[in-house]
């Protein structure tokens, strides 16, 4: 029996890969020998990632792309298929964030931004890879939800809307695309290091809030994007998860244990 978690040579698209959780996932997949397609909105960060992947010897394609660009997603998928001959997985990670804003102050623009980049951007990415995965009779799609969204974190209205909408799309896609051999699952991570103060002395109040957050969960620390979140995403991209679809996996140290 072949190794189930082997992603060697798999062609995997990771959107929003230049920072935060996306960057950690991209690095972990690179470690596993995947051939990567990485997207980001900003060219500088993307170039830095591309240089890093060159240094690792990871075959890759880097594309500046906003997830709201539906046609861009379609063009990218075609280019990926032309270059690599296949598309094995998609990690639809890109998502704009909005800092804490009470619901009563949320504007239409706020909602549009989050819903356009989140559920709609995720769907455009999913649509772009489906034809290739369907033809292959195999595909893996990982969407990104959020622990904060399941809990309904106060101050994060548009973000929560986006993430819960993504979980909904995940389930519908699982039902519709299952017969094609495409699994679609959602990961809800907690990994906030890239938002925490780099130097706790610089912002002790914020640092204290972050420290407090993790105290009461079973694995009492923040998730490391590459080493904690990455392997869970890798599992969902691999054959090991071939009989799981439509599921939401918490990658949050046990903070939330859904019914």
């Amino acid at each position: 029996m072949s190794n189930d978690i082997d992603l060697d040579g798999h062609v995997i698209i990771v959107t929003g890969a230049s920072k935060g959780i996306g960057l950690g996932i991209a690095r972990h997949l690179a470690d596993l020998g995947a051939r990567l397609v990485v997207t980001a909105r900003k060219p500088e960060a993307l170039e830095a990632l591309s240089a890093e992947l060159d240094g690792r010897g990871t075959p890759h394609l880097a594309r500046q792309l906003n997830t709201t660009d539906r046609e861009g997603a379609v063009a990218l998928a075609a280019d990926v298929h032309a270059q690599f001959g296949r598309i094995d997985g998609l990690v639809a990670n890109a998502q704009t964030f909005l800092s804490v804003t009470p619901l009563e102050e949320i504007t239409e623009r706020n909602m549009d931004l989050l819903l356009d980049t989140g559920p709609k951007g995720t769907l455009w990415g999913m649509q772009s890879v489906l034809p290739y995965m369907r033809e292959q009779g195999r595909g893996r799609i990982v969407t990104m939800g959020s622990n904060a969204a399941i809990n309904g974190a106060a101050g994060y209205g548009p973000y929560v809307s986006s993430k819960e909408a993504i979980r909904g799309i995940t389930r519908v896609a699982a039902r519709e695309w299952g017969p094609y051999g495409v699994t679609v699952n959602c990961v809800c991570p907690v990994s906030v290091a890239h938002r925490a103060p780099a130097n706790p002395e610089d912002d002790p109040v914020r640092a204290a809030v972050f420290a407090e957050t993790f105290k009461s969960q079973p694995i009492a620390r923040d998730g490391d994007a590459a080493n904690d979140i990455g392997p869970i995403v890798a599992f969902l991209l691999s054959d090991a998860s071939q009989y799981m679809t439509g599921q939401t996996l918490m990658a949050d140290g046990g903070a939330i244990m859904r019914p």
Partner: peptide
């Protein structure tokens, strides 16, 4: 118990 299952 409650403190450990809710963030608010």
């Amino acid at each position: 118990l409650t403190r450990n299952i809710t963030l608010s």
